[in-house]
Amino acid sequence: MRRRLLYILLSLNLLCAVGFTSPGATAPPGKPKVVEVVVREFEIVPKEIAVKPGEVLFVVRNTGAIEHDFAIEDAAAKSVARIAVIPPGKQEELRVALRPGLYTVLCTLPGHKDAGMKGMLNVQDSSS
């Protein structure tokens, strides 16, 4: 039973690691939903993220060889929140309260977005 529980926990962790979070997984009050993201030359993994409205903690690891950043922009390309710099091999966190809507996650360093470092962040209630 304990092994089975461990397996389930590991599986959930793996799902978070690949970053596609289920809209049905509601974060308990006070505890933000954790989304793990990898940034590297020149992509953001996962490319699509779905979360419920509310507090989200993005744990962003730079597995590339050069510096990157991580930003969230709304549909009007206005900056919502960002991590200013993530050195190569390092991990930074970003805690943000998100309202329903479609957002873009991207690296804003020169040329990185156009080279592929962008993804979609869908914030919606599971019922909608």
């Binding site: 510096e67 950043d69 930003a71 960002r82 200013a84 710099v85 804003t108 360093l109």
Partner: peptide, 8 residues
């Protein structure tokens, strides 16, 4: 008190 993006 807040970082600007890019190499520091």
């Amino acid at each position: 008190g807040k970082r600007a993006s890019g190499t520091q």
